[in-house]
Design a protein around this nucleic acid. Structure first.
Lengths: 344, 344
DNA sequence: ATGAAAGCGCTAACAC
DNA sequence: GTGTTAGCGCTTTCAT
């Protein structure tokens, strides 16, 4: 076994509790003793065993972070930001990937519960009821889900969807399609609700297609459905689906944006690199990761206050959207010929 | 605090050691007692505290996984595979991102050492010496680095680089450029060594450009250097750099592959989606993640056996490479006009 | 097959 | 300011 507090105590000629205090309450120990202990600790390569410490204090200095699919480019920037923010507060992050499986989410939260100070549930697929139950077993912060009594960081995708639909109707599109996300996704429901309301207000038709897998393949496979429905513009649940859809449309001989306009959501790095460059609703993923960590650490023991943080989204207009068959509004916020623009 | 072994013991009317045995050595306890204990445990929602267990057994059932940059699309599939493989063995994964910072790598390994059974060091940037030293403090498995005495999983990028260079010279390119990776990268050195030897054997000139940041931006910024050097074909350290380079070349008015051919390494998802589709050396990242976990768990305590696992790479020919100015070899393995081909 | 007791590495009262 | 003691939740001898 490695070097323990006892070794340091022996080397320094003090009791182990003094060594303990040197690390966990330095102000309680005589400066001379402290520096002596520190010196010996350094020399022996001593590091307090966090697990042992946690057994008493109840604080592990670990955070669990659960995502549906690490390989989905939406998540890594969020994970990275969370990890970096956690490290600032001397915490480590356990990352778990649940393969878009709601049942696995529960299992993983339970498995992690004892060795973390709290869990970040990002875009969970499980039910509200279950989340509420789990939040009684371990402090939870949810990202992209609103539940009364559960601290949350949510991106305002409803507003994003509205802006996107308005962009499309302003371009003269009268028949839109919405590619829904996976079952259990709160974000997907929000988008749907908002897109439907906005389309109705603009007098445009909206065909809902889905639920779909939130992947490139999920988008690719519904290209035919979009064409069959006769939609000239599509809002997809996320960029990956949008990119897959564009591939599928082009393979079917439809031009983007000549025949069909496509808007994604997320603004993953990829969306600037595919051709045509994707018009999309940018979501502040890194900010969400940081905010979620801050919330979890702030809440700590105080489980009463339950804030919900709302993060803004914004439409980034690129090359995958263009004029529709109908008259386009003179109030069109996006100049389609400009190389890149942002409308919020 | 949550429900402990004591609560279960009380409810079942047995001593805590019997409850302990029920979970850690079931065969030592009477079947009747066992099922009674299990029933009460289930009812109370008892879960053994792994940290407490680890204090005695020395096994945490946790694995550390350290990568340079989670946001680099090369890593997520590896992390995902490792996480999934770890879960099969009832282990959890701590993921840490070191921001391409060699010093931070050391710090993170030390911080994690006590709470994991071992650490997976993926594409480390630190020195061999340091890795050797750390491996005495905690079991280590290194991915993409060869060090005597340290268990490793390496992808055969040397062979991949050779195949890529041969592909380019066969197409008639006489002046190649190599975009080097970050300082401290073993992979980068391997690629360089192999590309240089292969180019020399083919009588082609090779200009080395770098080290560079292993990002899209890293590639974008050296487009001018490539053109100035007069190279007509480029092998980049990874796909991200290759894609950035293509952007930079096109912005400078050079056609790809018309004027310059570009080959990447990794075959990240992105490389099929950009235009032109990227010719690249595919690396088996998921397999590497699984193998690394298996190695770590197999080695366990037995630190003597030190296997090195080699994983093959293969050239995937897409649309970013084409004929060079020189005579192209009749033995050209890749038919440039075919939509997609694999040459190993 | 089960209980008793010691102890993993550490912190947290409580004395002095 | 420092030592003493008890104990976090659990496993592991050693008895019985």
């Amino acid at each position: 076994m490695a070097v323990t507090i006892r070794d340091v105590a022996r080397a320094s000629g003090v009791h182990i509790s003094t060594v303990s205090r040197t690390f966990s309450a330095p102000h309680l120990v005589n400066p001379n003793t402290r520096s002596r202990v520190l010196a010996h600790a350094e020399e022996l390569g001593y590091r307090p065993n966090r697990a042992a410490r946690a057994l008493i204090t109840g604080r592990t200095y670990n955070i669990g972070l659960i995502v549906a699919d690490i390989a989905n480019p939406f998540f890594p920037p969020l994970i990275k930001a969370a990890e970096s923010q956690a490290r600032k507060h001397d915490h480590h992050i356990f990352v778990a990937d649940t393969n878009e499986d709601a049942a696995l989410e529960e299992e993983v939260v339970r498995a992690l519960a004892k060795q973390v100070d709290g869990v970040l549930l990002v875009s969970p697929r499980m039910s509200n009821t279950l989340i509420e139950r789990l939040s009684r077993e371990v402090p939870l912060v949810v990202v992209n889900r609103q539940i009364a009594g559960i601290p949350a960081v949510v991106m305002d995708v409803a507003r994003g969807a509205r802006t996107a639909v308005e962009h499309l109707t302003a371009l003269g599109h009268r028949h839109l399609a919405l590619l829904g996300g996976p079952r259990g996704s709160w974000t997907s429901r929000e988008i749907r609700r908002s897109a439907a309301a906005t389309a109705r207000a603009a007098g445009a038709e909206l065909t809902i297609i889905g639920p779909n897998a939130p992947t490139e393949f999920g988008g690719l496979t519904v290209a035919q459905d979009v064409l069959r429905a006769g939609a000239t513009a599509v809002l997809a649940y996320n960029d990956l689906m949008a990119i897959g859809l564009i591939e599928g449309l082009m393979a079917a001989g439809a031009g983007v944006p000549a025949d069909v306009s496509v808007v994604g959501i997320d603004d993953i790095m990829l969306s600037r690199l595919t051709r045509p460059k994707l018009t999309t609703v940018a979501t502040p993923t890194a900010a969400a990761g940081r905010a979620a960590v801050d919330m979890l650490l702030a809440h700590g023991d105080d489980r009463r206050t339950t804030a919900h943080i709302h993060l803004q989204t914004e439409l980034v207009i690129r090359d995958s959207t263009g004029r529709g068959p109908g008259p386009h509004s003179p109030a069109d916020p996006g100049d389609v010929n400009a190389p890149e623009g942002v409308a919020s």
